[in-house]
Simulated scan of single mutants.
Amino acid sequence: MTKAAKTIRKIAGREPIAAAIVLGSGLSDIGALLEDKITIPYSEMKGFPGGGVSGHGRDLLIGQMGGKRVAVLTGRQHYYEHGNAAAMRPALEALSELGAETLLLTNSAGSVDQRFQPGDLMLIADHINYAGMNPLIGEPTDRRFVNMVNCYDLDLRAKATKLAQRFDYALGEGIYFWYSGPSFETVAEIQMAMRLGANAVGMSTAPEVILGRFLGMRVWACSSITNMGAGLSSENISHEHTKLMAVQGAEKLKKLIPALVEEL
Rank of each mutant, 00 (worst) to 15 (best):
S183V: 09
A221R: 00
R213M: 08
A221D: 00
A230R: 08
E240T: 11
H241G: 12
M245G: 01
E235N: 14
S180A: 15
T186A: 06
V201P: 12
N199F: 02
S204I: 06
T205A: 04
S233G: 15
M203Q: 12
P207L: 11
V219Y: 03
I237W: 12
G212W: 03
Q191G: 10
K243A: 11
P207W: 02
Y179R: 02
I190R: 03
A206T: 14
A193M: 07
E189S: 04
N227C: 11
W220N: 00
E208N: 01
E189C: 12
I237N: 13
S180W: 06
C222S: 04
A246E: 11
G231L: 06
M194S: 14
G216A: 09
S238C: 09
S234D: 15
I237S: 12
S204W: 05
H239T: 13
S204Q: 03
S204R: 02
G231T: 05
G197S: 08
I210Q: 00
F214T: 05
G216N: 04
R195D: 12
T186G: 11
V209F: 03
G181C: 11
I225V: 14
M203I: 05
F184Y: 15
A221M: 05
M217H: 02
G197P: 04
A188I: 07
V201Q: 12
M192N: 10
A206H: 05
S183T: 14
T242Y: 11
A221F: 04
A206F: 09
I225Y: 05
R218V: 01
A188G: 07
T226R: 01
L211Q: 06
F184S: 07
V187H: 14
S238F: 09
N227K: 09
E189L: 03
H241T: 14
E189W: 10
C222W: 02
A193P: 00
N227T: 09
T186M: 10
K243L: 15
M228V: 04
G212P: 00
V187L: 11
L211N: 02
E185R: 02
L244Y: 13
W220K: 00
W220D: 04
S204C: 06
L232F: 08
L196W: 14
I225M: 05
